[in-house]
Design a protein around this nucleic acid. Structure first.
Lengths: 128, 128
DNA sequence: CTGTATCCCGTAAGATACTG
DNA sequence: CAGTATCTTACGGGATACAG
């Protein structure tokens, strides 16, 4: 175990992404329905489970948030800290791998913004 | 209609991605199981349906290839040209929006490559 | 050669309830 | 507060056959 990451699960994951080309790997690890939003939020800092749930769209269930976080932990993107208190407190933060997504996310975001404009312009031309 | 893109479908698509943040948009348009590989192949140039099928992993059915291409056409990433011949010949090529993905794809690929190494190193440390 | 229609299946995701 | 168990649903994707 290094930095709290479940290594055994990492090698599992290495196997399971073996079929993917390098370009597909990112989709494999942040392609879940909520994972992108989770990464974006955690890029702002360490947060508790409840904070995440409130920060994300209302229709994410408790169960799904938990699952997506576990998968991201298994993939070495997120580190989970449990404080042995009552009531329990759990904090999530990005690992170096998680933080390394930042510049990429910015690129992806600006492409998305550009693409939206592109679609609107085409739709506009169609009105002529 | 501009450049052969189905504009009516574009406005449809504009609606359907309205719920996504800009960062999610890219995943919405190239997140299909084979779309990434299709983009990568078409970045090399215009290709026929059959060429695509042979270039992609053997387990993609022609039904799925057809569907993914149609969705990408609807999203304005791919342009489809039908030659009125017998037997029919159809060629696919990227639109400007499709080609605009190139630098992003390169970033995504190099992140994927880096991430693989990162996982291997962590797994290696675990052996110590 | 390219494409669609029909039917089927597996898995991601949601609802709900219960636990430490 | 955080998490899991169980059950269910929805949907992307696959097999196959047929058509222009």
């Amino acid at each position: 175990m290094a930095r709290g990451i479940q290594i055994s699960h990492l090698s599992e994951r290495l196997e399971s992404i073996a079929d993917f080309c390098d370009t597909e790997v990112m989709f494999a690890v942040v392609g879940g329905k909520w994972k992108l939003l989770i990464v974006l939020y955690l890029l702002r800092g360490k947060h508790r489970f409840g904070e995440l749930q409130r920060a994300l769209p209302a229709d994410i269930t408790h169960r799904m948030l938990s699952r997506q976080l576990r998968e991201m932990e298994r993939d070495g993107l997120v580190h989970r800290t449990v404080y042995p208190e009552v009531p329990p407190r759990v904090e999530y933060e990005l690992t170096p791998a998680g933080r390394s997504l930042k510049p990429l996310m910015e690129q992806v975001e600006s492409w998305g913004s550009w693409y939206r404009k592109y679609l609107r312009e085409l739709a506009h031309k169609a009105d002529d």
